[in-house]
């Protein structure tokens, strides 16, 4: 069966290496140290007061539903600057089965061209 030795083996990729078990051990140890350090901090706060409300620059809190940032608004900065590529890709994805087959034929044709048959 598998010996303990094998479990500690370093995973060698030929050009690099990575030993997850030892990383995990180190992680756990450092976690404990930091957890103890963190334990010195103050743990209390006043539950249910204005303290626990979300900071909105002093504006009144609206209902939760409208405060949840929807997923389609996430990564605005990225989608904004990559708009051209996203729009191009969207226009390819028509959802039409005929187009799916067309792409298959195109890929086959391109490969034929590459291999030099046609």
């Amino acid at each position: 069966m598998i010996s303990i030795d094998e479990l500690f083996n370093t995973f060698n990729t030929g050009n690099g290496f990575w030993n997850p078990v030892l990383w995990l051990i180190a992680f756990v140890i450092i976690f404990l140290i930091i957890y103890i350090i963190r334990g010195f901090g103050n743990n209390s706060y006043k539950k249910g007061t204005g303290q626990t409300q979300v900071f909105l620059s002093g504006n009144p809190e609206s209902d939760f539903e409208s405060m949840h940032v929807k997923s389609s608004n996430l990564y605005w900065g990225w989608t904004e600057s990559m708009k051209w590529i996203i729009d191009a890709l969207k226009s390819i994805h028509t959802g039409n089965v005929s187009d799916y087959v067309l792409w298959f034929v195109i890929v086959m044709g391109v490969l034929f061209l590459f291999v030099g048959l046609i």
Binding site: K90, H93, T94, G95, N96, V97, S98
Partner: peptide, 10 residues
């Protein structure tokens, strides 16, 4: 019509 069945990719 196959174009009516475009799925969600619009």
């Amino acid at each position: 019509d196959v174009r009516k069945f475009g799925g969600d990719d619009q």
